[in-house]
Amino acid sequence: MTEISPWMALLGGGLIGLGSWLLLAMNGRIAGISGIVGGLLAPQAGEVAWRVLFIAGLIGGVALHHFLVAPEGSITLAAGWPLVIVAGLLVGIGTRMGGGCTSGHGICGISRLSVRSIVATCVFVGVAAATVLVVRHAVGG
């Protein structure tokens, strides 16, 4: 894994905040990815196109970076297929049940000083760290 300087990470995070703020200031919507994707599963009039375009932008932003800035960049998904499927199911169920994910609760919710989002973020970061602890250090692997 390549080194990421703290400044690059801060700048990346700042852009995530800026993108979230743009969607709020322009369209009045929360940039919660699970909510935006989830809303496409029960399409309502006037609620489809902006979601599709936001997601297209999200993918486009990563593509721009990958093809123009860091073509050597890669990702590592070490987990095997069964774990990937179980994790996907849990993330899908959990984010809809809990009303948000890292973006909606973690960035937008905390920025609004929402008590629900602060609690949700503490819970999912804590549980995720505990999960990694169990998988990597207790079970081994």
């Binding site: 700048l11 990346g12 852009l15 993108g19 322009m26 990563v62 721009l64």
Partner: peptide, 26 residues
């Protein structure tokens, strides 16, 4: 509104890539 949504997504996505948050190993 649609252009704004696309632009917001682009900035957000570029930030995710720049900070390597797209990489599960990270």
């Amino acid at each position: 509104k649609l252009i704004a949504a696309l632009a917001a997504g682009l900035v957000f996505g570029f930030g995710l890539a720049l900070s390597d948050m797209v990489n599960p190993a990270r």
